[in-house]
């Protein structure tokens, strides 16, 4: 896994190998990734560490598993400034997040969201939150409670009154 990510990073045709710094990221479950600094600094958190000269040794990425971190690195590679010229290909790749009703998709998006939130990656965060918004916008209140696993704390009377007040939103 780690070697694949390294290969991916260096095979993108960079000829100025010497001047490109590699950062070492370590996932919560111990997987190690080497990533070009220019790519990893799409994360505001990592950029801050680089700017403060705190990125000299291995950077622990807590709360993010190796599986998720590999997905994040794939995102970075595809979104590196100047790296992707094929807008269509990028859109196609992003479209896999469009439908997240399936449980496993939902878990993937959840993992990516938490990683994007923790590492502060605005583009990825925007993509994932939009995907969730798209998935939830047509849901009923009960479906929303199920989706986010939350319980109603309204009593029956309150909920009836609220539904009445917002009746138009429950009609087709």
């Amino acid at each position: 896994m780690s070697t694949a990510a390294t290969a991916d990073a260096s095979s993108s045709g960079d000829t100025t190998e010497g001047s490109v710094r590699l950062l070492t990221l370590q996932s919560e479950d111990g997987e190690v990734f080497e990533v070009k600094e220019t790519i990893a600094t799409q994360s505001v958190t990592i950029k801050g560490m680089v700017d403060d000269d705190c990125a000299t040794s291995t950077i622990p990425v807590c709360n993010v598993t190796g599986r998720t971190l590999a997905m994040v690195i794939e995102w970075w590679n595809k979104h590196e400034i100047g790296a992707v010229s094929n807008e269509k290909e990028l859109k196609e790749w992003e479209s896999q997040f469009d439908t997240i009703d399936d449980k496993s998709d939902r878990d993937d998006v959840y993992d990516l969201l938490m990683a994007a939130n923790y590492l502060n990656i605005p583009t990825l965060l925007d993509c994932c939150t939009s995907a969730v918004a798209e998935a939830i916008k047509g849901k009923s209140t009960d479906e929303m409670r199920e989706f986010f696993d939350i319980k109603s704390d309204f009593d029956e009377k309150e909920e009836d009154a609220l539904r009445k007040e917002n009746q138009w939103a429950f009609e087709n």
Binding site: L113, A133, I136, K139, S140, M144, D153
Partner: peptide, 23 residues
């Protein structure tokens, strides 16, 4: 904070419905 991010991206009709999810 992420719930906030989801909700600002959904239409107002959904929002009016989601007011009934919980307090």
């Amino acid at each position: 904070s992420l719930i906030f991010e989801f909700l600002i991206r959904v239409p107002v009709k959904s929002l009016s419905r989601f007011k009934c999810v919980n307090k």
